[in-house]
Design a protein around this nucleic acid. Structure first.
Lengths: 205, 205
DNA sequence: ACGCAAAGGTTAACAGTGTTAACTTTTTTA
DNA sequence: TAAAAAAGTTAACACTGTTAACCTTTGCGT
């Protein structure tokens, strides 16, 4: 029927898709369900997206963009490089916990579940890496961080953090381990791994 | 037809399932395809497994067991705790690269793609954590590793490593970054994060 | 203002999925 | 050898993503 074309149908589809994803999870994320949400036929999705993967990629792209913006924000509010790394890590964690399903979508490609993420979209996603890369460089210049390959280290940094959140979200943590403690401990270790390794720098906690 | 019941059908199904998984990937992993492999009707899978997830869980279980055995092996061959951590990390990497699809299956639950991993099977999976936990304890006793919560640290250790391999396998690495270098660097950082933080201990490389 | 082309959207259909119920065959047991 | 239990099959259901063919509305050029 499509009574009102109130908005760009493409936007409507994306919105509905996100709603379905958030409420039903990726497993029950179907084109017909999305279409039903906005009273439109399932096939009209194909007018705006090549296929289901394409739609999911769009969701991924937006989620990544949102995350990157948040990261950009917090990094500008901290001052020392170490504090920045910590702030970035905790913001990442916050995002992953708050938007679990979207976070999972971001890391879905991994499971070969999905066509590879297209490389045009890939470029935008790199912003998060650049942020960390800059912080690491800054820290290296200031003699706080031991890192001669900041770009690479930025990738290892996020990878480590992703692994931590992946375990948390998949609920595979040993029940004897408290989630928040786990996160705190992990972040501490990760950041320690980048600190310069000469003087003893205990952080007062 | 099922001419020969050469073996326990359950075993045959598991074997066929693994073959299909390895050759087709999880995306095209279907019960009918598995059944076709061994000339049996798709529904007979239900005689031995509750449902598809149950079958996948069985595959996961076996893959985890195999991985844990490998880990057990290498840890016994190294001597210092640090060397053991390194050996464990590299064995993990080797496994993930060699049996990519099985590795991915192990970490599939994460994507909510799948019913939660049943907790009886969960217990067996913990062996890998215990191995690292012991090494960390050993290192702490020897004053090489700063860790008062070895169990928790074991989880953070594997989580980080998983994150690293997850990025590698999803082919999301910046093309300017060499894969092996990335892995090496990441492992170094991860292990550094657990080393005691007083004397400078440069490893000669 | 009219006709026509194109855009936007729909219906019907295909091939495939996991899963269930009802049926048939084989094996075991008494 | 007959009855009971186990092992397996066929048919069907309710879905899935995707394509081709069709209809309907919109905008445009004359």
């Amino acid at each position: 029927m499509s009574k009102t074309k109130e908005l760009n149908l493409k936007e409507q589809i994306i919105d509905a898709a996100r709603r379905v994803l958030l409420s039903e999870g990726y497993r029950n994320f179907s084109l017909r369900k999305i279409a039903g949400e906005i009273d439109v036929s399932a096939t009209s999705i194909y007018l705006h997206f090549e296929n289901k993967d394409d739609l999911v990629h769009t969701l991924m792209e937006q989620a990544i963009e949102r995350l990157n913006n948040q990261l950009q924000q917090v990094v500008s509010e901290a001052d020392s490089p170490i504090a920045k790394l910590e702030a970035l890590a905790y913001e990442y964690v916050r995002f992953a916990l708050k938007y679990q399903r979207e976070y999972q979508i971001i890391h879905l490609t991994s499971s070969d579940e999905m066509t590879r993420y297209p490389k045009e979209k890939f470029r935008k996603a790199r912003k998060g890496y650049e942020i960390v890369s800059n912080v690491l460089q800054e820290g290296a210049d200031g003699g706080l961080i031991a890192e001669e390959k900041p770009r690479m280290a930025a990738y290892t940094f996020w990878a480590q953090l992703h692994g931590v959140m992946s375990v948390v979200l998949s609920k595979r943590l040993d029940t004897r381990i408290n989630r928040q403690e786990f996160i705190d401990e992990a972040i501490e270790h990760i950041i320690d791994g980048y600190k310069i390794r000469t003087a003893l720098q205990t952080n007062n906690k």
